[in-house]
Amino acid sequence: MPTIPLPETLPPNAGALLRLIAEMLVPEDLRRVAEADYGQRADEHLAALREIVSGGALDLGQRVPGEVLELARWDQPPIEPSQEQRHWRRAFACTALLGAYGRAENEGYVHGPNQTLIALIDSLHALERILPTRERWRAMAGIDAAGTALLAWLTPRLSYEPFAEAAFFGLGLLWFALACEVEDPALVALAEWIMATEDATAAPLPDELGAPLPGDWLLGTTVFNLNHDLWCLLGARLPERLSPRHGPQVVEAVCLISAMIVHHPDD
């Protein structure tokens, strides 16, 4: 990992995003998540999920409710208005897991956190597309700022070896921060941090693996690759997060990262 600190974007906050997403759930949603493991121990899971909504900590060393949250993370709702609550449920499950990843006592139970992060971003992006304009403003108000604050808190805490995934979280932070009132110098510094962190993570892998890297830029730094298609989609969508207020340095940095993550040797 590089020694440079994560650039400041918005003040870190571990719980704001979970609170916002929980407000979009209806009582049936928690029940659906609690039943994700074929209904097994559903009442126990439901009680534990309610505690998390109330501000309780998630212990990933316990099956309840970690197992159903991890199962809900793998849901793949279509981008259709009728699937709105499924997207909120997946976003809730992913956000609860991300909050747990930042707690030191859960470190030994974290596997492939990039897969959780990108599922969250995918559902939030879907919700932006399917919600009617008025509902979108009501539902999504504060989401990007809260996502920025969560990843500003979480990213420095991710240092698991040998496949550290902090660069993925820096990219997720950039995704959210581009939609917030974050100044251009901080965004450019964040893009540079992502590149430096990816490079530091990738450099020792050939020696450690005894083989070339198993993939392209960023995606080749982790063995947890079940959601790499979603990361490629994020890369393609990243320039859409730019707005007229962003200067040429931000535009250049974002377009470079976009091109690097969507590139494939066979293209």
Score class of each variant (00 low, 15 high):
P2D: 11
I4K: 13
P5G: 07
P5I: 11
A14S: 13
A16K: 00
L17K: 05
R19W: 00
A22E: 01
V26Q: 14
V26H: 14
E28H: 08
H45M: 07
L46P: 07
A48D: 04
I52G: 11
G56W: 03
D59G: 00
D59C: 00
E67Q: 15
V68T: 14
R73A: 08
I79R: 10
R89G: 09
C94N: 12
A96W: 07
E107F: 09
G112T: 01
L120K: 02
I121W: 04
D122I: 04
L124T: 02
E128M: 13
E128K: 15
P132H: 13
R136D: 09
R138C: 01
T148C: 15
A149V: 02
W153P: 10
A166E: 10
L171A: 10
L178S: 04
A179E: 09
C180G: 10
E181F: 01
D184A: 12
P185A: 06
E192P: 00
W193P: 06
M195K: 11
A203D: 11
P206N: 09
P212S: 05
L218N: 01
V223P: 14
C232I: 15
G235C: 08
A236T: 05
P244H: 09
P244K: 12
H246A: 07
G247T: 07
V250S: 04
A253L: 04
H263F: 14
D266H: 11
